[in-house]
Design a binder for these strands. Structure first.
Lengths: 118, 118
DNA sequence: ATCAATCATAACCATCTCGTTATATAGCGA
DNA sequence: TCGCTATATAACGAGATGGTTATGATTGAT
């Protein structure tokens, strides 16, 4: 029961941009209006609106309505699906970390006890 | 100690393409030559070579050398970093799942005991 | 020495992406 | 009604992306 591939495409593509990741990080703190989201960036408001639309199309964000404002809210389920997909590869990076740990252990073992070098 | 942003850009962008995700899935089974990787796709060999290069630039894959073959090997540490970034949002999707669970519980509670419908 | 196999590279093309500026739309408050 | 605020949309351009075909480089086999 994998999420449909097209959904993963949209999710990963949305996450591939640092501005959009920063927007998500901001939204993790709490909902925000478009202008609030735009404030930290040296970028026009329409540019931010476009980024929000990309996030919305990926289902990562939804919008409310408050007078003229369209508060944006994080919707993290697609992120969960992305992690779900990535989890298939957990054993590989765990192996890698383990190899690194082993290496560090050996360096430790063969280092003279009082050696402060490095 | 976040991975540098540019690295996350490359990782997520690499994952945004279904062909590349399929290549990674194949490599999870074991190393493979370019031709082996290309075989399942209705796509030219140069196209696959390009995809492999994208994966390589993102550090998701490395290459060996065996006669004319350039066996490709999965390198999953960047995936681990990607998951690391995504983990910041775990609480959101857990809340969402919890809301879903609550909903399902209530549906359960109010469903007639013997109701087989759906 | 040549041939076939494996893979990479170049040139090209269509389409998408990410930014811009200019303008339109909608709601609030005076 | 008027004008301000908040946001969306349109039109445009530069550069990235994802595919193609044609060709080049390297290596093993005959």
């Amino acid at each position: 029961m994998q999420p449909n591939p097209n959904q993963l495409d949209l999710t990963f593509a949305a996450l591939a941009d640092p501005t959009r990741r920063a927007i998500l990080a901001r939204l993790a703190v709490g909902d925000a209006s478009v202008n609030e989201l735009a404030a930290p960036f040296e970028m026009s408001q329409p540019a931010i609106s476009k980024h929000i639309k990309v996030l919305e199309n990926a289902g990562l964000v939804s919008r409310g309505k408050d007078a003229q404002r369209r508060p944006v809210k994080i919707e993290a389920l697609p992120l969960a699906d992305a992690v779900g997909w990535l989890e298939n590869y957990r054993k590989f990076w765990e192996q890698s970390y383990q190899r690194l740990d082993t290496l560090l252990d050996e360096l430790q073992r063969f280092a003279p006890k009082g050696d402060k070098k490095n």
